[in-house]
Design a protein around this nucleic acid. Sequence first.
DNA 1: TCGCATCCTGACCGTATGGTCAATACGAAG
DNA 2: CTTCGTATTGACCATACGGTCAGGATGCGA
Lengths: 215, 215
Amino acid sequence: MPDTARISRIRSGRRTDIRRENERLILDAAEKVFAEAGFGGATMQLIADMAGLPKANLHYYFPTKEALYRRVVQNIFEIWLDAAASFDGAAGPVEGIGAYVEAKMDISRRHPHGSKVWAAEVMHGAPVIQDYLETTLRAWTEGRMAVIQRWIDEGKMAPIDPRHLLYMLWATTQHYADFGHQIETLNAGQPLSDRQWREATESVKTIILRGIGAL
Amino acid sequence: MPDTARISRIRSGRRTDIRRENERLILDAAEKVFAEAGFGGATMQLIADMAGLPKANLHYYFPTKEALYRRVVQNIFEIWLDAAASFDGAAGPVEGIGAYVEAKMDISRRHPHGSKVWAAEVMHGAPVIQDYLETTLRAWTEGRMAVIQRWIDEGKMAPIDPRHLLYMLWATTQHYADFGHQIETLNAGQPLSDRQWREATESVKTIILRGIGAL
DNA sequence: TCGCATCCTGACCGTATGGTCAATACGAAG
DNA sequence: CTTCGTATTGACCATACGGTCAGGATGCGA
């Protein structure tokens, strides 16, 4: 019986284990349901069923639907920001932007639900994460724009408006998550294979890097 | 249809005017509300208020919320397909893709709500327009892929996978509608000006056309 | 074993929403 | 004016949903 095994293995801190594990179950289910149905279309009952818990239990860990949604969006935002690291410490656009595209394509593949929730949140006017947009995202964006501008000044790439380059990077990479269903439909109804993901990533990288005159 | 009926239908233009005008009011309001709140978050009451009509009147013209939503999505899809014309009859990628980008950027600017509704529909697995994806969109896509392949064979552009080029075109252009709120936030909270829209269009065109080796 | 904090959950409640309907108003044709 | 199809609308209903709560179960330290 896995339950007792886990209990006997861990002496103390089981309480926090239970909490963490259930929060994980709920957040995973919520991410999927919010992505597939939207905030308004998602129901606590459906999330509960998908998490394998009674609905009242959700309200024990997350007081309201909004609170649960907020946590889902924040989680996504953090994952999204982590891809920033790929951008840093790069000698030039080929390494920096190349690594960034790869990181973001990887996120699109591994967290398609999260990407959709994020997209829907922004499309609806960012009612929950507007402050993040105005603080963290704005700061991040300006930092990267400065890096790109430096590369331009150093003659490592063509004089492109850094802002629109960033938008293009976000748009193209997230498209593979947000519009994954459409892509799948146009791929004979099959999800992209490992090889197709690699080809997609290479296509994006190649077109953009050549497009900014970095190749 | 009997002759007398057709004549009376034609002569009594006022009736069809009322119908058409109210349907227009409702569809415009619905597009906006669906875009801002999602299908699940939208309410018939809110759409009615925004259209300046009593709620029961909506159900007179559109039997159900789903029917109304379906019409909104279909309208968007048609606008979206119309941009296809820009692609046709072009001598090469510079004219064809250039015109396509301009047409799609124009749609993003003029129909931001529609673009969002479309995006949300696809993100949720295209429950309403799956058949369109499998028929019309698939046929359209294959046709343009063939055109792009011909340009490649004629040496007018680099050998890029046409599929991923199309995805990039869709992603980049629609991003300015779907993520318009984020872009506005990063633009000091101001909507893009005429000039900024022109710059955005030029950036997208330049990067992509150079990226595919057409410049 | 006991006491206490944490965790669990069935049953319940108020509200909001999509949809219905019957009564009414309107306007064109005869 | 009368007739008849179209358009309008307030009132109403059944349902589904988010959220509450009381009472019980569970596990841990002492």
